[in-house]
Computed example of a mutant assay.
Amino acid sequence: MTSSPRWLSRYQQGQREQVWQELRQLGGAAREPESAQEAQLVCDEMARRARQNIEAIVDRLSSDGYRFHANDDEQTPLQPHTPPTVNAAAYVDWLEQRFGAVPMTLSSWVRIVGDVWLVGTHPAWSSSASADPLVIELEATRYPAGQSPRRYIEDEWADWNERQAEYPDNGVFVLPVAPDRFHKDNVSGGEPYGFVLPDGCVDGLFSWETTMPFVSYLNWVFSEGGFPWPSGDDDQWQVRHRLVQNLLPL
């Protein structure tokens, strides 16, 4: 394949922004045979770098005595990072069967990164949960079998299609993968964060309080140590300074 060394080698050499721009400009054409394999390799490399960042953040928070917990009154302890299961690739296949196309960056995240939940409380930063800690749960392995994410997604997709039939300007469907920043802090908030689907592009659109490419969202979050929203607490910046050390740009 003539393009085989082009995007991946340039990405690894540091031309990340240029590579993402080129891949985004291709749109769905990136899935053509001459481009698809190389484009997916770039997304996989991105996911490996993201996982390294997440593992570093989790290790640093754990060393600080951070309590990872649910966003409820009980503050039930939770695992901050669950690696992909043996069913990860099958889950991506199911998403593609259901929606027709999912972004390559989403596929790479499911297969390589897994589920991430950074909500919790820092001993030196009591308002950490209000700083929009990173959460991306796609496989959603922490939920009991009776609360399968597939069932929830099926219901959300059916509801959206019903509304779309009645109101064609209903808007895009968003695959929910995280509570919004208010719900993360256990207060009423807005709609969940998630991916706009269907989407056959390399880097999907991530919907939170605005909509932006997923990799751009991740780079912003990692540039803030996993806690991108100002919490109004001066201690945030002291904690963040250590969390961001040597994190990898995507």
Rank of each mutant, 00 (worst) to 15 (best):
24 R>N: 05
3 S>H: 12
3 S>D: 08
49 R>N: 06
37 Q>R: 13
82 T>G: 07
61 L>D: 00
86 V>T: 08
56 A>I: 10
61 L>W: 12
4 S>I: 06
77 P>F: 13
57 I>T: 07
82 T>I: 12
9 S>C: 11
71 N>S: 11
88 A>S: 06
81 H>D: 01
78 L>F: 04
73 D>K: 13
86 V>L: 15
28 G>E: 10
46 M>D: 03
76 T>H: 12
5 P>N: 11
80 P>D: 01
45 E>P: 04
33 P>V: 11
10 R>K: 10
6 R>P: 00
20 W>T: 01
5 P>G: 08
48 R>K: 15
84 P>T: 02
68 F>I: 02
7 W>Q: 03
33 P>T: 11
59 D>S: 13
89 A>I: 05
4 S>M: 14
34 E>Q: 14
44 D>Y: 15
53 N>H: 08
68 F>W: 09
20 W>S: 02
5 P>W: 11
4 S>G: 03
60 R>N: 09
76 T>L: 13
40 Q>A: 11
8 L>K: 01
43 C>G: 06
44 D>H: 14
55 E>D: 11
3 S>T: 09
37 Q>C: 08
10 R>I: 03
63 S>N: 06
19 V>T: 01
17 E>Q: 08
76 T>F: 11
72 D>A: 08
47 A>H: 06
77 P>D: 01
4 S>W: 15
21 Q>H: 13
56 A>P: 07
49 R>K: 12
2 T>Q: 14
88 A>F: 10
68 F>T: 00
60 R>S: 08
15 Q>T: 01
89 A>C: 07
34 E>V: 12
42 V>S: 02
76 T>Y: 14
76 T>P: 06
16 R>Y: 06
51 R>L: 14
16 R>A: 03
77 P>Y: 12
13 Q>I: 04
81 H>I: 00
3 S>C: 08
53 N>P: 05
17 E>W: 10
14 G>S: 08
80 P>E: 05
31 R>N: 07
16 R>K: 11
9 S>Q: 12
15 Q>I: 03
84 P>W: 13
69 H>V: 04
36 A>K: 15
61 L>E: 02
5 P>M: 09
29 A>D: 07
66 Y>M: 03
6 R>W: 15
53 N>C: 11
68 F>A: 04
70 A>V: 00
85 T>D: 05
66 Y>D: 02
9 S>G: 01
28 G>H: 12
42 V>W: 02
46 M>L: 14
51 R>H: 12
87 N>R: 14
17 E>H: 09
56 A>E: 10
43 C>H: 09
8 L>R: 00
48 R>G: 05
50 A>W: 15
60 R>E: 06
55 E>F: 14
58 V>Y: 12
85 T>L: 09
18 Q>T: 05
76 T>G: 01
23 L>P: 02
16 R>N: 05
45 E>R: 13
70 A>T: 00
56 A>D: 09
46 M>Q: 11
39 A>G: 09
61 L>V: 02
24 R>I: 00
16 R>T: 00
7 W>A: 01
63 S>I: 01
54 I>E: 08
13 Q>K: 05
72 D>P: 00
74 E>P: 00
35 S>P: 00
18 Q>A: 12
